[in-house]
């Protein structure tokens, strides 16, 4: 297992938690409550990868892609050179078409899901992305009312990404942001890895914590660790 190929997240402290990074081709879900930082974290991972020359694609289904970039730059002023990566094509931020399909209800569920998958493949194809973030897959769940069709669709999506040689990061909203409620609905078993983000609620002050719950093909730390969203990016308090 020592020679597994990994993609470093580049996020301070997170690679220590992952014992080096995300194993290549793993489809990992970043799960957390509202406002836990799922969008910013997945975008930061892509930013660092793109800076190292790894083509990356961010698929924004919940917000306008331009808003994602704008929020990213305002949260992380030190990463404002993200525009250069976008301009030279190493980082693609897209998803308008797929987001529009999700919002329009005219298509049949499976037809429109098929189109979303091909929209995603088109975005991935623009720069032959090796690392892809989809924000969020919870939205796809809302779109597909039938649970069985949803699970089948998620399987199709993840196996397609694997086939395209892509390492995937999917964000998902958790019904509870408390750690004691850590239980995953069935579709989470499809993913190769789960990173969970929590509010560590002390009444007055918002504190955040994360842990790796699962990572196929690799050992990892089991510690629940605090993290902060600082102007210089995420800071994860793991031990080196």
């Amino acid at each position: 297992m020592g020679d597994v190929q990994r993609i470093n997240t580049g996020v301070e402290g997170l690679d220590d938690l992952l014992y080096g990074g995300v194993p290549e081709l793993n489809q990992v879900v970043v799960a957390g409550g509202p406002g836990s930082g799922k969008t910013l974290l997945s975008m930061e991972i892509l930013y660092h990868a793109a800076k190292r020359g790894i083509p990356a694609a961010f698929i924004a289904l919940e917000e306008d892609p331009r808003t994602v970039v704008k929020n990213f730059k305002s949260a992380f002023p030190s990463f404002s050179d993200v525009d250069d990566l976008i301009n030279n094509g190493t980082l693609v931020v897209g998803g308008e078409d797929a987001a529009m399909r999700i919002q329009s209800t005219s298509d049949s569920e499976s037809y429109s899901f098929g189109n979303i998958v091909s929209d995603i493949e088109t975005i991935v194809g623009t720069n032959n992305a090796k690392l892809v973030a989809i924000d969020s897959v919870s939205l796809i769940k809302l779109m597909i009312s039938d649970n069985l069709t949803y699970r089948k669709s998620m399987l199709a999506l993840t196996s397609n990404l694997r086939r395209l040689g892509v390492t995937g990061i999917m964000t998902a909203e958790m019904p509870s942001s408390e750690r004691k409620d850590l239980k995953f609905s069935q579709e989470f078993f499809i993913f190769d890895g789960i990173l969970a983000m929590y509010q560590m609620g002390e009444a007055d002050k918002r504190t955040l914590g994360m842990e790796i719950v699962k990572m196929r093909g690799s050992n990892h730390s089991w510690s629940l660790v605090p993290y902060e969203i600082t102007s210089g990016g995420f800071k994860v308090y793991s031990i080196q």
Binding site: E202, K205, S223, V225, P226
Partner: peptide, 14 residues
């Protein structure tokens, strides 16, 4: 301060 103290304790204990 919390939660760094707790995390620190978990590290030492583990």
């Amino acid at each position: 301060p919390y939660p760094y103290n707790d995390s620190c304790v978990v590290n030492v204990a583990s």
